[in-house]
Each structure stands twice: as structure tokens, then as C-alpha cells.
Nucleic acid binder design. Structure first.
Length: 702
RNA sequence: GCUCCCGUCGUCCAGCGGCCUAGGACGCCGCCCUCUCAAGGCGGUAACGAGGGUUCAAAUCCCUUCGGGAGUACCA
């Protein structure tokens, strides 16, 4: 704990007081000036086709009114914190502003004006600290002691450079730019998809730009296949990206491995400014050193002061970034509030490996700054890496270092109103129902797997949005547009969320029921034509239908593409199955009877139903009645079968079940009369006829 | 170990000092409907981790404690 004294009452009151020189480092307090630069209404990138969205002008947003959840009340944080809160409250309302709408944006015209979520946090009564107060005293000039000698990040420019008033009114903040930056080492799983989704929602809901960057610093791990799979998954989910490997964009390249020149140029410039130092120890030596330190009860924190000075020029060495030795840094996290670290506990990160490659901390920060990212939304596992990134942001933008580097390597220049990422949102982890890390058992397979299992992309998006977030009005079923309109980081939960396949499945069932019949028919085709064959590797956890059973010799039921005749049958089948399906792949259980001639009877059903006394009589009677029918309609069929109950002196259930097994092959099926109607009469009669000896055999067996 | 994060029904979300004998959803249980299975309708079950404090009043604020998670790499 940061200097937490023994918890006596007196100590409590003073607990967070620190000497002024320990105040947060300047780099961490980079923060958009009130009413920063005006965003320019640039045309946004090309439109993906799958959103024939409402085109139209969008209204500008109002100034944020809320204060950050992490805001510290005056009672603890001292005057500086209070001043900051006050500033937020005093921001002027901005008049509506016209700008070009993103044509691809769904619901653009309908959405009410919103304030940018970077600046929006849970509202709190004035004067009350909503979150546990952290170290106070923010907002004063940067401390000394740490090197290099530094100025305030904005000090080298005149205020006029930073605040450019709108000719017709108050300034507006820059366009939000968010990025989803996965490593391409595998396929997308639900955790990364949720991160992507939240980024996307924030961009779409705030007139922002969504960037999809591949973070393949270690290029060997990026396969074309996995990159393709990720893009396909995004397309399937309906998350379109304005800039990225596939979408293109003005600030590429969007594969990190293609930006190596930039990273190296930046590293060289950083080295020239003296903020980097050589560490000649090998990984083994470092490991040994750490063990020593631990043994001596000293923290294994790498600092320049504890690093042996470079011996020879020829030795290979890593380049580390010298972080401050003391003081603290605080970031404002949109979901976590203010988080403070003590520099004394932060190891100097390696920015350049001994082989000359740059590391993630450098590449990530450089690209975020170079691409004008305004909000970094990512997994909680990256929270602890934030201080050094924030520190780097300052260095990168000081005296135009990054701009010079970009120019040097011929990459697109940054926009004049770009500063550095000013907001963070660290999303909690998604865990399994057992609170353990998500694994295959929990359904944490690739997102494509969910498609195969019959989940609708809309369901995934809806459910994932609700994992760790909920709209103010408590709605649970929201479509993409509604999510965009309602989403904001200030309602994102801080605690880990468990992935509940049951709830996802229930959501999916509801959505299936909502689908238009023709639409559903088309969506079912992939489960019938062999695109998504039935799965038989069902685990205990995620196999809702225990009776489905493995399907070894499954064969496609329709051709690719389906014939008109097949489509007609499917279209007729849809109303019968729509309200009893939770997942699209369940159609595979119902469909065979309607598509094949040779029907294999389910043995359990035969035993249980056809084996009952009188079953054969029922079948004979049913055959007789159906054969005599004039019209082959549901009503006629019902009129033929229902009276059998009275004729034979048994309940109708006893009549229906044998016929059901004979005609559909199973004791579980869509409604009987409708099912019979959907099949040709000849086939129905033949099946009943064929079942009679089976029933006789089963009935005499015991 | 150290640093940081988190802690309301089994699960997700609500709750922002009195509207909380804690609300909604999924699950589960029961009933209704019913030709099977579903769907649908109705009802029920079930939580503020613990202990102190502040307050007329605490799930909400403070402290401690316990529990969980992440990080602690020349991975990202």
C-alpha cells in the first residue's frame, strides 16, 4: 500500500497526504485542455455495404456534464482535485454542430445527441467522492527528481496552438478514435469480441472512428489464416471498422509488423534524448539478479540506479526506458475511476530488445499516438501496463518527436488536433460459471464456433454487450442500433463477469422466434447443406439437448444451393420449428423426416411408444383414415385422426404418439397434423404401413 | 512476496444515504395451456462476504478484515 500507516483513526485522516514533490508525474496528467481543439469534419472512410444505414446529418453533442466516477471529492484530494472537478462542471454547453454523418452508421438519424463518453462518468452528488479517493494533489506542475528534465507536456507550445476556437462558437473535442488491437496469435474468443464490441459501440455512438489494428510485433505468430478468421468473425458479427487491415484508411499500415521502421525511428530518437539506457544483462543474469533481490527481501524492480553501467560498446544490450524513481502517477479510467501507481514500484521497461526489435510497450504506444487514438479500451490485464504507456505518450509528443519520426519513415502525419490517448477503459475479465478463467469447457471457443452451434450474431452481440454493462432503463434485448444509442462506459461494471451459456441460449431462442419466417429459412440452410454439420463433441456444460446424441453418419439434407423444392419444404417447416428452437442447429434434429425418403426410426421411441399395446391398431386405423381423406390439410388430417381416440377408447395422446413415431421417426417432433400435412400423402402412408410390423414386433417382444 | 483491480440472488445487470420487507433477466421449482417437445401465461425460490465506525437512517460513506482476479518477461 502506498504509505498506508497503521489504521488508527488519526492516521486515517492524514493517510493520503504526501509531500508535494511526490505528486503525480507530469506525463500522467496529460489531459485535454478545456474545450480542446476543434475536430474537423473530415469525410469518414468508405462504407461497408452491409449497412444500408440511414444517411443524414447528425447533431453535435453536448458538453459533458457528469464528473468522473473516480473523481475525488474535496474532502480528501485537496484543492487541485476539486479544481479539476469544477472545471468539468464549468464547461460550456456546446451548440449543436453539423458534421458529416457516417453513412454506414446504423440508427444515425434516430439517436439523440450524446456527450463523448471519454468525458462522461457516473454522475455523483457534488462534493461526494464516488470512488475511494486516491492520492490527492493533482494538477500542479510536474515534479522534479525524475529524469529527463521535463516540462509540462504542453508547455512547449503556446496555448493558442492548443485551443483553436471555432470561428462560430466554442471549440469542440476531437473526434473519438478507438482501436481494437488484438494479437493475431489465435482466433477471437468471447473476451476479445467483447472488447472489440465495446470499442465499436463507443465509436459508433460518439461520431467516432473505429480502428482495427493487428498487433503482430512478433510477426511469426501472425498467420494469414488467423487474421482472415478474425476479420471474418467481425464481419459476421456486423462490426465494421473504419480503418484497419481490411478496411484500409489514411493512417496505416494497420499491421504492426509493417510499422517497424517507425518504431525503430522512434526508438532512435528517444535514445538521442537520453531517456533510454543500455542494460547489458542477459535474460539469465536478470533472472538471477531478481532472485537475489527477492532473497534479500528487496523488490526486484529494475531501475537505472540498480542497473550495472554499460561495460563495452560492442556488447549487445537492451534499451530500457528510464521511469521516474519516485512520485506517483494517476490515470482516469472510465470504468475504474482514478488509479494511482507509485513510480518506485515500476520497473523500467525494455523498449528495444537486444536483437534490435522493439517491444510491445513501445510499439503499442507509438501506434496509438501515431494513429490519433483518443481512448484506449482493452482488457483489465493491461491495466498495470498503463503508467509506462502514459509516460511514453508524453515523451513521444514532446517537441514533435513522433511527428518527425513519422515524416522520416514516410508515414502519414498526425492530424493537428491529435494529442495522445486521454482516456482509458479497462474491461474486467470474462470468467466461466465456476469463476475460473474461461476455457473451452465454458464455451470459450473461437467465435466461429458459436456460429456453427447455431447462435445468431445478433444474439452474441446483444449478450456480450450485457456482460458487464446494462442500459439505464434495464432493457435486456437490444439490437445493434439500440446498443449504439444506449452504450456508455460509465455503466460498465468493474467486476469480472461469468459467461453464462444458458442465458445466451435463451436469448438466442427469443431472437429466433422474432425472425421473419423467410429470413429464418435462409439462416437455417447452412445447418442443412453441410456447411455446419451436427456436432457430436458435445461437452456436459454446453449441450442443452441431451437427447440429440452424436450423429456419426450425417449427410446434408439439402443441396447447395437448395433447390426450389427444398426451399419450399424448409419454408413450410419453419413455422413448425421456429418456436421450439433455441439454436439454429437444432433444425438438424427435426428436419430429416421432411427431407429424406428412408426414415430410420429412433429406437428409444420405438421401444417406448410403438411397443405399447394397441400401437399397431392405432397405426392401422390411422392409415385407413388418412388414406380415405379427400383434402390433405391440417384441418382434414386432424379431423381424421382425432376421432380415433373415441373409436379406440383411448386418450388422444395414445393415438398421436404412435403416429408421430411412425411418421417422424421420433416421439419428439413438431406438431403432428402440421407435420403430416407438410409431407406427401404417399410418404406418410408408406411410413405408417412400414411401422405396423415394427410395432407388432416391439409389442410382442415383452 | 510486492503492485494494482474486484466483491448485491447460482449467473448477468439495477441500486449513487430514507422510495429496499433489495428490483429485472437467465436458471431452477410449481401451476395453467397442451397430440410429444417446446413456446406462452401465472406464481415461487434465491443475494448485499465479515467486523467495526459515521449518521436520526447504510447495500449505498469511512476503516479493518476475509475472499477472488490480474500483473510482476528481451509475451502481447
Amino acid at each position: 500500500m502506498l504509505g498506508r500507516p497503521a489504521g488508527d483513526a488519526a492516521g486515517r485522516l492524514l493517510r493520503h497526504r504526501r509531500p508535494l514533490r511526490d505528486l503525480p508525474h507530469g506525463a500522467a496528467r496529460v489531459r485535454r485542455l478545456p474545450g480542446g481543439d476543434r475536430a474537423r469534419a473530415r469525410p469518414l472512410p468508405p462504407v461497408p455495404r452491409h449497412h444500408e444505414g440511414a444517411d443524414g446529418e447528425r447533431e453535435g453533442r453536448r458538453r459533458p456534464r457528469g464528473r468522473a466516477r473516480g473523481h475525488q471529492g474535496a474532502r480528501r484530494g485537496g484543492g487541485a482535485a476539486d479544481a479539476r472537478g469544477g472545471r468539468r462542471h464549468q464547461r460550456p454547453l456546446r451548440p449543436p454542430r453539423r458534421r458529416r454523418a457516417h453513412p454506414a452508421r446504423p440508427g444515425a438519424a434516430r439517436r439523440p445527441p450524446r456527450r463523448p463518453a471519454e468525458l462522461r462518468r457516473r454522475r455523483a452528488p457534488a462534493g461526494r467522492a464516488v470512488r475511494r479517493p486516491r492520492l490527492g494533489g493533482r494538477g500542479r506542475p510536474p515534479g522534479r527528481g525524475a529524469l529527463p528534465p521535463r516540462r509540462h507536456p504542453l508547455a512547449s507550445r503556446s496555448p493558442a496552438d492548443r485551443i483553436r476556437p471555432h470561428p462560430e462558437g466554442p471549440p469542440v473535442p476531437p473526434t473519438p478514435r478507438v482501436r481494437f488491437a488484438p494479437a493475431p496469435s489465435g482466433w477471437l474468443h468471447v473476451g476479445s469480441v467483447r472488447t472489440a464490441l465495446f470499442n465499436w459501440l463507443h465509436a459508433r455512438g460518439n461520431d467516432g472512428v473505429a480502428i482495427f489494428r493487428i498487433e503482430d510485433t512478433d510477426a511469426s505468430r501472425a498467420t494469414a489464416a488467423s487474421m482472415d478468421a478474425m476479420h471474418d468473425a467481425m464481419a459476421w458479427l456486423g462490426l465494421d471498422w473504419d480503418e484497419g487491415v481490411r478496411a484500409g484508411g489514411a493512417y496505416g499500415p494497420y499491421r504492426q509488423s509493417e510499422r517497424k521502421d517507425l518504431h525503430r525511428a522512434v526508438a532512435r530518437r528517444l535514445e538521442e534524448t537520453g531517456v533510454l539506457y543500455r542494460d547489458e544483462r542477459t535474460a539469465e543474469e536478470l533472472e538471477a539478479w531478481r532472485n537475489e533481490r527477492r532473497a534479500a527481501d528487496l523488490p526486484p524492480i529494475v531501475k537505472r540506479s540498480t542497473t550495472p553501467p554499460p561495460a563495452g560498446d560492442d556488447r549487445t544490450a537492451t534499451l530500457r526506458l528510464q521511469l521516474p524513481d519516485e512520485g506517483t502517477t494517476t490515470i482516469s479510467d472510465l470504468v475504474r475511476g482514478d488509479v494511482t501507481w507509485d513510480w518506485a514500484h515500476e520497473s523500467d521497461p525494455v523498449l528495444v530488445r537486444s536483437n534490435g526489435d522493439v517491444t510491445y510497450p513501445l510499439a503499442n504506444s507509438v501506434d496509438d499516438v501515431a494513429q490519433g487514438v483518443t481512448l484506449v479500451c482493452r482488457g483489465e490485464d493491461l491495466l498495470s501496463v498503463t503508467p509506462r504507456q502514459v509516460f511514453l505518450y508524453d515523451l513521444l509528443t514532446r517537441d514533435g518527436l513522433i511527428d518527425d519520426a513519422l515524416a522520416e519513415v514516410g508515414l502519414p502525419a498526425r492530424e493537428p488536433d491529435w494529442t495522445v490517448p486521454s482516456g482509458f477503459a479497462h474491461l474486467s475479465m470474462i470468467v466461466g460459471m465456476d469463476r475460473k478463467k474461461l476455457s473451452k469447457r465454458h464455451g470459450s471457443v473461437s467465435i466461429q464456433e458459436f456460429a456453427r452451434k447455431g447462435f445468431l450474431p445478433e444474439t452474441i452481440v446483444n449478450y456480450l454487450a450485457l456482460l458487464g454493462w446494462g442500459p439505464e432503463d434495464g432493457r435486456e434485448r437490444l439490437d445493434r442500433d439500440e446498443l449504439v444509442a444506449a452504450f456508455s462506459f460509465d455503466r460498465v461494471s468493474r467486476s469480472a463477469a461469468a459467461f453464462d451459456t444458458d442465458k445466451l441460449t435463451a436469448f438466442n431462442g427469443e431472437r429466433i422466434r422474432d425472425l421473419d419466417g423467410t429470413e429464418l429459412a435462409h439462416r437455417l440452410v447452412p445447418y442443412l447443406d453441410g456447411t455446419y454439420p451436427p456436432s457430436n463433441e458435445t461437452t456436459e456444460d454446453d449441450a442443452p439437448d441431451g437427447e440429440g446424441g452424436p450423429v456419426a453418419d450425417w449427410e446434408p439434407l439439402v443441396s447447395t444451393p437448395p433447390t426450389d423444392e427444398e426451399l419450399a419444404i424448409l419454408r413450410g417447416l419453419v413455422p413448425l420449428v421456429q418456436e421450439r428452437m433455441q439454436r439454429l442447429d437444432e433444425v438438424q434434429r427435426y428436419a430429416p423426416a421432411f427431407f429424406v425418403d428412408e426414415l430410420a426410426l429412433d429406437q428409444a421411441s420405438v421401444d417406448k411408444v410403438l411397443g405399447k399395446p394397441g400401437a399397431a391398431d392405432v397405426l392401422r386405423a390411422a392409415h385407413r383414415e388418412l388414406a380415405d381423406l379427400d383434402a390433405w390439410t391440417t384441418e382434414a388430417i386432424e379431423g381424421a385422426l382425432r376421432p380415433l381416440s373415441e373409436e379406440l377408447g383411448i386418450g388422444f395422446g395414445k393415438v398421436a404418439q404412435p403416429v408421430r413415431v411412425a411418421v417422424t421417426g421420433s416421439q419428439v417432433s413438431p406438431p403432428l397434423f402440421e407435420s403430416v400435412e407438410l409431407m406427401p400423402r404417399g410418404r406418410v402412408l408408406a411410413r405408417i404401413e412400414a411401422a405396423i410390423p415394427v410395432a407388432e414386433a416391439a409389442g410382442s417382444g415383452d
